[in-house]
Nucleic acid binder design. Structure first.
Length: 163
DNA sequence: GCCAACGTTGGC
DNA sequence: GCCAACGTTGGC
């Protein structure tokens, strides 16, 4: 698979796009994921330079808040080795790490926050993973056409659509 | 290896 | 707060 665009879910109560914007170098480790399908994507697929839709889940409203990019590809998620961390995994070890993280850097906020309802209303996004019934993956591939559509929905008139 | 019970996600 | 959908766990 050579998807170049991804959607990453975050609960804004925990860490929002605004938090990322304020972070040092506008960059954060994106990890704590304890799902194997998501792990495989983080470990094997996300590459430096890939585009990221930063999605606020479990929010009022939920939706895409901003654009980020991958600045460090998959590496062992340090939280799995920290007994004090709630994502600690006693069955993992540095020699055989089980969970992975990437680093992402904010590129820009969307001119308009694009709500989940707006995404659902967009016929051309019908096949988007996020919108599929029961979809829960916190790392999802985004097709190029979907990426462009979301950016268009989030752009103010005349804004540059390219990342 | 089956599958019921349980935990989590996340929209509503 | 509810609950549907899904993933994981663990008894057998």
């Amino acid at each position: 698979m050579s998807a170049r665009h991804w959607l990453l879910k975050v609960e804004p109560e925990v860490f929002s796009f605004a938090d990322l914007w304020r972070a040092k170098k506008r960059t954060t480790a994106w990890g704590g994921v304890r799902n194997y399908q998501a792990r495989n994507l983080l470990r094997d697929e996300l590459a430096v330079g890939d585009g990221v839709l930063f999605y606020h889940s479990n929010a009022e409203p939920s939706g895409v808040a901003g654009v980020a990019r991958v600045v460090r590809a998959g590496y062992p998620d340090p939280t799995q080795f920290d007994p004090r961390d709630e994502s600690f995994d006693a069955k993992s070890s540095p020699a055989a790490p089980r969970w992975f993280a990437v680093d992402v850097q904010a590129v820009r906020a969307l001119a308009r926050f694009v709500t989940l309802a707006e995404l659902r209303a967009e016929a051309s996004l019908e096949g988007m993973e996020l919108l599929r019934r029961g979809s829960r993956l916190s790392v999802q591939p985004v097709a190029r056409t979907e990426w462009r559509t979301v950016l268009r929905l989030g752009a103010s008139i005349g804004a540059d659509l390219e990342l």
